[in-house]
């Protein structure tokens, strides 16, 4: 009822800007978000190309997690536009007006965007295998045997092939987070969002999760990562954005932003975390 063949085209043109052929994977234009009178995001504009890794760093309360959650419409943007792969997120532009997207269409958009949470948020009443097959079977119409086959491949990829029938409760934090990554990958997303994926982990478990993320980046996955792991950001990211007070203060190659920050606020932050 809402399928308009020209719509993707129009979206592409808007998203990519003049002359762009392939849209950026993520394009944010002047994104604002407020809770009541509190502005959490004050005009974020950035782009993430296909296969690129963007790391968002900054102090807590700087809005980096909020921005990440806007990308898959867990938070509603109040002003500005956000596109993922050329498709406007959360709204539909028709006849010069923005229409709120019905939940069903928002859900469809989210299937292209995997998300990994700080607290893992695995479903405790399901086995590891069911956690991973749940979304493909329920939302993508996958057949159970095929979904399980794919889930086992993903578990193998994150190094947990032997944990298929375990319950999340029986796994360590690092193992749970790797299952959560496998669960997000099960829908074959174009883009992966990571919201402080290692912040809730014991220090000795951080490495195993970062290893999986590094492999994912090497395999060409487009990723937006909110993190405090400067070593990871420096090594894996194509772009690092330092956020503070709801704005991007400084953005560029990791060697520049982390290695040679230009802005005083960036320097002050890095001196505390490095």
């Amino acid at each position: 009822m809402t399928t308009d063949p020209t719509q993707g085209q129009a979206g592409d043109a808007a998203a990519g800007g003049a002359g762009a052929r392939v849209p950026d994977m993520v394009l944010a234009e002047d994104v604002w978000k407020n809770y009541g009178s509190l502005d959490v995001l004050k005009g974020i504009s950035l782009r993430v190309g296909r296969g690129e890794v963007l790391c968002l760093i900054g102090p807590s309360g700087s809005g980096k997690s909020t921005f990440l959650r806007c990308i898959n419409h867990l938070e509603k943007v109040n002003a500005g536009r956000l596109w993922v792969d050329g498709e406007l997120i959360g709204y539909r532009e028709r006849g010069g007006a923005l229409h709120e997207m019905p939940p069903k269409d928002a859900a469809r958009q989210r299937r292209n965007i995997g998300m990994v949470f700080q607290q893992f948020n695995l479903f405790p009443h399901m086995t590891v295998l069911d956690n991973i097959t749940c979304a493909p079977v329920l939302t993508a119409g996958a057949k159970k045997p095929q979904a399980q086959q794919r889930a086992r491949e993903l578990l193998d990829r994150v190094g947990l092939a032997d944990k298929a029938s375990a319950y999340p409760e029986q796994l360590s934090g690092g193992q749970q987070q790797r299952v959560a990554i496998a669960r997000a990958l099960a829908l074959s997303p174009k883009l992966m969002l990571f919201d402080e994926p290692t912040s809730a982990l014991d220090p000795e478990l951080v490495g195993e999760v970062l290893d999986v993320m590094r492999d994912l980046a090497d395999a060409g996955m487009t990723m937006v990562v909110v993190t405090h792991e400067m070593g990871f950001a420096r090594e894996v990211a194509d772009t690092v954005a330092f956020m503070d007070g709801g704005v991007v203060v400084e953005m560029g190659a990791p060697g520049d932003v982390i290695g040679n920050p230009q802005h005083g606020r960036t320097r002050a932050f890095l001196s505390k975390v490095l």
Partner: peptide, 15 residues
Amino acid sequence: GQIEAATALGLTWWQ
């Protein structure tokens, strides 16, 4: 967080 994770996976409200 459970509801958010399900929403992020594209499950509908009823699912």
